[in-house]
Computed example of a mutant assay.
Amino acid sequence: MSSNTANVNAGKSKTKAPASSGDTISNLGPAFDPFAQGNDPFAEAAPTKVIEKSVGSKADKIHIRLQQRNGRKTITTVQGIPDKYDPRKLLKAMKKEFACNGHVVHSADSDDEDSPAPGKKDEHGKVLQFQGDQRVAVKEFLVTAGLVTAKEAKDQIVIHGY
């Protein structure tokens, strides 16, 4: 009986899988060690600056947002219009085109001393505000008026919201 058990154990011996070649691991790229000295996610130094440079700055883009007011009332804000264009002339042409009201907020030449944050007056630059949802109309106007070319519109104009 002991010879039967020896044959059974010998027939069921486990074999190890063949060692994988180093080629498949090298295709995955360098090994990432989350605890290595240069991979601190909470570091305030260089990694955030590198990410910001690769993504691009917000200053070179035109942001179009929709803000909710009371009930169904909305405001469309346009931020990041280049300084070489007069915001008041743009506003006048856009109001006439869209058949809505609007105004310029945080203009560099305004002298509003009753601003809630006087030190941060020019943080967002010149912001145009329009009544209603005018996001698509603003983008089309910027392209047709020649402020942005059709090719650049995909990269330069960012429409926020649903």
Rank of each mutant, 00 (worst) to 15 (best):
G125N: 12
P34M: 12
E44P: 00
K120L: 14
H63M: 08
P34S: 05
L66R: 01
V136W: 12
F141W: 08
A10S: 13
P30W: 06
K12C: 03
D23P: 00
P47W: 00
G11V: 14
M94Y: 00
G132D: 11
D111T: 09
I81Y: 07
S2H: 15
S13E: 10
Q37L: 12
N7I: 14
G102K: 00
I64L: 03
G119W: 00
Q134D: 10
T76C: 12
K92Y: 04
L90T: 07
D109L: 01
K120G: 14
T24H: 11
K61H: 11
N27T: 15
D60K: 13
N7P: 05
N39Y: 03
R72W: 06
I159S: 07
S110H: 09
V78M: 07
I159Y: 12
A137S: 06
P87M: 02
G56C: 04
Y162E: 13
D83S: 08
A6N: 05
Y85R: 02
D112E: 14
D86E: 05
E44Q: 10
I159T: 08
P87F: 01
G80D: 15
T149A: 07
L66E: 04
K16R: 11
I157T: 06
I64F: 04
E123N: 08
A31S: 15
P34D: 13
A137M: 06
V158E: 09
T5I: 14
T15V: 04
M1R: 08
Q129T: 08
V105R: 13
A150L: 07
F141K: 15
K61D: 15
S110L: 11
F42V: 03
L142T: 06
M1S: 05
A117V: 12
P41R: 09
D86I: 01
K84S: 05
A46N: 01
S110D: 06
A19P: 00
T15A: 03
Q37C: 09
E123K: 04
K92L: 13
T24Y: 07
H63P: 06
S21K: 01
R135C: 15
E44I: 12
A108W: 15
P41T: 02
N70P: 06
N4V: 10
D83N: 07
L91T: 02
G38I: 09
I81N: 02
G11C: 09
K95M: 06
A99K: 10
V143L: 03
A59G: 09
H160T: 10
I64T: 09
D111Q: 09
E140P: 01
G22I: 04
D112N: 14
R88S: 14
G161A: 05
I157R: 02
A45M: 00
S107P: 01
A19V: 01
Q67V: 02
S21T: 07
D83C: 03
K14G: 03
V105A: 05
N70D: 11
D114R: 04
A153Q: 08
Q79W: 03
C100L: 14
A6W: 07
H103T: 14
Q134T: 11
Q79P: 04
T15Q: 05
S26H: 10
H63T: 11
D83V: 13
R135W: 08
S57T: 10
T15S: 13
K92D: 03
T76K: 01
T48K: 00
D83R: 11
K96T: 15
G38N: 09
E113I: 14
V148I: 15
T24K: 03
K92R: 07
K84P: 05
E140T: 09
K120P: 10
G132S: 07
A150G: 11
D60F: 05
Q131E: 04
R88C: 06
Q131W: 04
G71N: 11
